[in-house]
């Protein structure tokens, strides 16, 4: 069944700020096998000119879809998760993410298009600090296989 186009433009905000911790960055760096000390050691990060440890470029995936789940899981949207694969991902940065940041993410279902038998859904995540400073934007394209038939 085709996805409900009424959802295009709907925005969902993360219910609480995401607190970026040194330990979470260290855990994520370990999981991707990256031994860079700037992810693991605050002193090394400071020696390199950063205020604290830096998050790897793909780190926002940890929290950037938290708000969007509300929309994507809405039965009215019509998404069959068992057929979903990750199609594309992009992060653009206004500034790096550091341990200690308190971040909010507003996720918007920005586009739905059919390509052949598949439905492509783009979710844009606008990440800011709790004070409203822009930090990064995530573009997530999920593909529902067979959804457009």
């Amino acid at each position: 069944m085709a996805l409900n186009r009424d959802f295009i433009g709907r925005a969902y905000s993360s219910p609480t700020p995401y607190e970026v911790s040194r330990l979470k960055i260290k855990e994520f760096a370990a999981a991707i096998g990256d031994a860079n000390p700037i992810y693991r050691d605050a002193e090394a990060a400071k020696a390199a000119g950063h205020p604290d440890v830096v998050a790897p470029p793909t780190f926002p995936i940890v929290f950037a879809l938290a708000g969007a789940g509300e929309g994507l899981n809405d039965p009215e949207f019509g998404l069959d998760w068992s057929m979903v694969v990750h199609g594309e991902q992009r992060f653009t940065y206004d500034r790096p993410i550091y341990a200690g940041d308190q971040l909010l993410c507003t996720s918007t279902i920005s586009e739905i298009r059919s390509v052949g038998r598949n439905e492509f859904v783009t979710v844009r995540g606008d990440v800011t600090t709790v004070d409203g400073e822009p930090v990064c934007t995530s573009f997530n394209v999920i593909v529902e296989r067979g959804g457009a038939k």
Binding site: T58, E88, R90
Partner: peptide, 24 residues
Amino acid sequence: AQGGRYVTDWAGDPAAVVDYGVRF
């Protein structure tokens, strides 16, 4: 993430990546 690691290792700073996108 492995592609990101490749770029940050080359550039010498994780914060040097200002835009990174892929298709799977």
